[in-house]
Every structure is written in C-alpha cells, then in structure tokens.
Amino acid sequence: MTNTRPRVELIPIFEDNYVFCLIDDNNQEAFVIDPGEAAKTSQYLKDNGLKLKGVLLTHHHNDHVGGVRPLVSEHPAPIYAPLKNKTQIGHADTWVTEGETVRLGPFEFKVLELPGHTLGHVAYWEPKMKWLFSGDVLFGLGCGRLFEGSYEQGYESLQRIKKLPADTLVYCTHEYTEANLNFCNMLSNLDNSPITGDNEDLELYANQLLSRREMELPSVPLKLSVELRVNPFLLAKSVSQFTYLRDLRNKQ
C-alpha cells in the first residue's frame, strides 16, 4: 500500500461552522476537532469508512462541543479539552494545558493557550504539517469577539500566532471572511484607519475570496502569510489599536 499524506476535510455544520476531520488514509482513522453537531460528523465518518480515534476541543462554547457526547457514544474515542474549561465541559478524558503535546496517530499537536475569546481557549498547532486549529481566536480578516478575556489577552494571543511560520495554514472554525471583508473595506475609507497594509493585497484577497465563495468553496484554511499582510487585527501595532478595531467591529 502506498503511504499517503494526512489531510484535513471540512464538515460544514449550522450556518457557518466547520468541524475539522483529520484523516490518516493509511489506517482509515480520523481525528475530529470541535464537533459542535454530531449527526453530520458521524455520517461523514460512516460514508468514508473512518474509525474515530480522538476528539480535540478548543473551548467550551456549544457550537464547538455540543455534538461531542452523541458522537463518542456512537464512535467511542478519547476527548481532549482545555483544563481551564473543565467546569464548563466536564466530560473530557484528558485535560490539556500550555506547552503540552497531544500525540494522535501521525499527528503531534502542541497546545497553545490563547485567551481572549474565552479565558480557557486553546489552539492546536501541528508543526510537521504546519497546521493551526485556531478555534475562534483568528478568522479570515478578523478575530474572535472577547466574551471573557481582556483586550490585552486578545492582542497577545494574536501576537503568538504571528510568530508561527508564515507558511502556516490556519483552520478557523467559522466562515466569517466575507463579513470581515466588508469591515476591512469600511476601514479603508476612514481617514484615521489604523490599517497599514497594502490596499493591492486586500484587493487581490477580495477577488480570490469572492471567486471561491461564488463557487461555494470555503475560505478556510487561511494562509497565515496572507493574513499577516491584510488582517487588520494582525496589523494592529498596539493594544490600543487592537481595542479600537475590536470595538469598531463589535458595532458592525
């Protein structure tokens, strides 16, 4: 049998969520990240003859964890979740913290604690594949709302992501990129806009994004190298700039 490279498939759920299914074709095994809904995820595993071998959770919001219990009742597998969300999640097998490595099949995930959206939020970084599963911390042209954390925490979490290799692929859990593009276009028309990126880069991004969406293709995964040039929240040079942008985006 020819060895094939592991891959990530996106399972759309709800209006704009994705469940990520990491597939090891050599063993017909799958590892699922943030199954907010069970039925579609379970059906995908059955349709593709995959055995579920692990579930990774980034944070406690229901659209990320709501499908975990029915999914593992049908496809038994260990659940990994952030320790700081233990009281909110309550049904993981392994609790993870900053700097730990989770080894599942061919994958080795480094746990990054990235508070802001929630206090216990983690991301999973796979350095060999250069994949980042960012949950709700970073989006295409945007970032997650700060439901629990401070502006300082949100800003610092993005600074950590900026230090990852530029060729990282970012798997964020929501298809928000078009809405965030509208925000960027609004920012570009402000006299005091903190955006310092090249408008030509944003125009190219917009053309490629709209072409993909017209074909009903996802904008995910994101290329970190591109987001570094056009995402206003990654371009923010200080907590005060980040705060200004986040407050402005909250009003949209």
Rank of each mutant, 00 (worst) to 15 (best):
A166Y: 01
D167M: 00
D136T: 05
V137Y: 02
E126I: 12
L132Y: 12
K163Q: 13
P127L: 08
G135N: 06
K128Q: 13
L132S: 06
L158E: 11
E152S: 09
T168Q: 01
Y155V: 01
P115R: 02
S134I: 05
S134Y: 01
E152C: 00
V96H: 00
L138M: 10
E152A: 14
L146A: 03
R160D: 11
H117W: 05
Y151L: 13
L169I: 12
L119G: 15
E113H: 08
E152V: 04
D93F: 05
S134M: 12
R103F: 14
F107A: 05
T97P: 04
P165S: 11
T101M: 10
E148M: 08
G116H: 13
G116A: 04
S150W: 09
Y155S: 11
E126A: 07
G116Y: 04
P165F: 02
D167A: 07
V96F: 08
K162L: 14
Q153D: 15
E126G: 13
L138W: 06
E100I: 02
G149D: 06
L104K: 06
V122R: 06
H117L: 08
E100G: 09
Q159P: 07
S134T: 11
D93H: 14
Q153M: 15
F107I: 07
V102M: 00
A123D: 03
T97K: 13
F109S: 01
T97Y: 07
L169R: 07
W125S: 10
D93G: 13
G142H: 00
P115K: 03
P127T: 05
E98Q: 10
L132W: 09
R145C: 08
R103T: 15
S150C: 10
F139C: 06
F107K: 04
I161E: 01
S150I: 10
S134R: 05
V122D: 02
T94D: 07
H121V: 00
L164E: 08
G105K: 06
V111K: 02
V102I: 11
F147A: 11
G105C: 09
R160K: 14
C143H: 07
S150F: 13
L112K: 09
L119C: 14
P106G: 14
T118A: 09
L104P: 10
A92S: 10
E113K: 08
L119A: 11
T101E: 14
T101I: 10
S150E: 10
P115A: 08
D93N: 14
T118R: 09
K162P: 12
I161H: 01
